[in-house]
Design a protein around this nucleic acid. Structure first.
Length: 393
DNA sequence: GTAGGGTTAG
């Protein structure tokens, strides 16, 4: 596997990082992603965040295929780069390990900073906390926060505290999160809208609506602006109160000078779907562009899933084709649901087209899953497959 | 998107 990296990096033509980034967006095959990333020239004039983003995407593609050894050799190879002495560069490695859910390697990289000659501040500390959260080790975050900040004499900033708050919320402990916020106030660390948002989300998702409303007041008292994300959290809580209520909140959002985004409209769609109003949900989808929004993978996932749920598999298939065109493909389980439904409805050509496309789009480790599904559904390869290939191309 | 942080799983 590691030989793949060497092979690809020596045989591909050099391209710019920004070009690599846009190609990576639509490339789900980890080997091809790796080839694109390796061929991206590092002395490119692109700003640093472009290459950081490209690295994250590559790591994400590899992680989806469980290619952890490849991720390690890719990231470890950067430790011999002279830039490793710069904290942001090293921090990007820690963050990428987090993206892959490889917390042990993230921690190891943090501990290696002395020998690599990289100074520590809250930047790398925050990357480490971020890696811990990305790896879903929520209950480890408070321990890490205390031990690391003490051992390496790092002074946590508002972002560090924000991650502590987020971790407590993910761990289902909003009261601990609120204690952190109160502690920040005492220490004179700014309490921002961003640090508060996970708490609000947590309270709503636990059904503690009154507490959530009181918490919102608390935020406003501290001068936190209620921004689009806060509104989206409020909207998420209103999804099961009917689409009318969601629309009200979207109006309220506009009236306070905020622009509803794709996530806001996705919630509206979900709300329609929950009431069985599929036509209305589809209208929201079709109207996204008018509102200056673009459908994302969650948009397609929601629509495909709910089309299937209401037995409208052909409509689901049409939306699936849109998602392929937009390079925003729903997850495997949603598409499996669609494939099964199409077969049940004897839409064999569509089902074969779906599987044919997915075999090309999904990483190789899922190929077996698709083959198995193909077998279970009795979709054996036949003469008419040539026709299907043309139809799905 | 500009070092590191918040919202979408039915």
């Amino acid at each position: 596997m590691a030989s793949t990296i060497r092979h690809l990096s020596t045989t591909t033509k050099k391209i710019s990082i920004s070009k690599a980034k846009s190609r990576l967006r639509s490339e789900h095959d980890p080997d091809k992603a790796l080839a694109i990333f390796s061929s991206a020239s590092s002395n490119d004039s692109s700003p640093p965040f472009v290459s950081r983003y490209a690295q994250d995407l590559t790591v994400r593609r590899l992680a989806k295929s469980h290619r952890f050894a490849d991720i390690e050799s890719l990231l470890e190879s950067h430790k011999s780069n002279p830039q490793i002495k710069q904290e942001p560069f090293l921090s990007s490695l820690i963050r990428s390990y987090g993206v892959a859910g490889m917390f042990d390697q993230a921690l190891k990289t943090y501990q290696e900073m002395d020998q690599l000659g990289t100074p520590r501040s809250f930047i790398s500390f925050n990357s480490l906390l971020s890696a811990c959260i990305q790896s879903k080790l929520y209950n480890k975050v408070p321990v890490l926060f205390n031990e690391i900040s003490e051992k390496y004499r790092v002074l946590p900033d508002k972002v560090s505290f924000g991650m502590l708050v987020k971790a407590y919320c993910e761990d289902g402990k909003p009261e601990k999160a609120i204690e952190v916020l109160e502690g920040m106030e005492k220490k004179g660390v700014e309490v921002t809208t961003i640090v508060c948002t996970p708490v609000l989300n947590c309270l709503y998702s636990k059904g503690k609506n009154e507490e959530a409303e009181r918490f919102l007041d608390w935020m406003v008292e501290r001068g936190c602006e209620l921004d689009a994300v806060v509104y989206n959290v409020k909207i998420s809580n209103a999804v099961n109160q009917g689409a009318e209520r969601v629309k009200e909140l979207i109006e309220e959002m506009k009236n306070s000078g905020l622009k509803p985004d794709t996530i806001s409209y996705n919630y509206l769609m979900t709300s329609y779907c929950m009431s069985g109003m599929m036509e209305e949900a589809k209208k929201v989808y079709e109207g996204l562009r008018v509102h200056g929004c673009k459908a994302n993978a969650a948009t397609f996932r929601t629509l495909v899933f709910n089309s299937c749920k209401s037995g409208e598999y052909e409509k689901g298939y049409k939306i699936f084709k849109d998602s392929v065109r937009e390079h925003r493909i729903p997850d495997f389980n949603t598409l499996k649901y669609l494939a099964k439904g199409l077969v049940e409805k004897k839409k064999i050509k569509e089902a074969k087209g779906l599987i044919h496309t997915m075999k090309k789009k999904f990483p190789p480790n899922l190929l077996n899953a698709w083959r198995k599904l193909e077998e279970n559904l009795g979709l054996h390869s036949t003469e008419e497959d040539k026709e299907v290939k043309e139809a799905s191309a």
